[in-house]
């Protein structure tokens, strides 16, 4: 699972969960890919993400110091170098082993072999 996906996921489907976002993320193992940077595609993706969730994801792979604490005003005003950092986080980091955790109920969804499992039953306590 590329870190981008984490940004789109929530645990609102669980009973008694109202926001369920962002999911907490524990990364036990990840691989770094080298996927070609494309300025336009990166901006399209950044336009859709929630910055607070990206900060959670960056922290999970110990890279929070690489991105600004505040969301940049306009993505298309960033230089290629600045955008590359975001591209790297969203597209190059592939989580292999870890956990997604509901921020409200603390329900754990395991990530194994790069695939998160959102079906666990104790999700529905």
């Amino acid at each position: 699972m590329k870190l981008f996906v984490h940004n789109f996921m929530s645990s609102r489907f669980l009973k008694n969960v109202t926001v369920g976002y962002p999911l907490n993320l524990v990364v036990k193992q990840f691989v770094e890919k080298d996927i070609e940077f494309d300025r336009d595609n990166t901006i399209v993706m950044l336009d859709r993400i929630q910055y607070e969730a990206l900060i959670v994801a960056a922290a999970a792979v110990n890279q929070s110091d690489r991105i600004p604490r505040e969301k940049p005003e306009k993505w298309d005003e960033l230089t290629d170098e600045q955008l590359r950092v975001f591209h790297h986080l969203l597209m190059n980091i592939d989580v292999i082993d870890g956990e997604l955790i509901c921020p409200e109920t603390k329900t754990v969804f395991p990530i194994r072999d790069g695939i998160p499992n959102m079906l666990k039953v104790d999700a529905e306590k």
Binding site: M1, K2, F4, V5, N7, F8, M9, S10, S11, R12, F13, L14, V17, G20, Y21, P22, K33, I35, E36, R48, I49, Q50, A53, M91, G114, I115, P116, N117, M118, L119
Partner: peptide
């Protein structure tokens, strides 16, 4: 085309709440 593959989730697609509000 591995560069285009963001991932798969084991999930129930009838539960729309697996997607956050910003997911488009």
């Amino acid at each position: 085309s591995e560069s285009q593959f963001l991932g798969v989730l084991i999930a129930d697609s009838s539960k729309h709440g697996i997607w956050s509000c910003n997911a488009k």
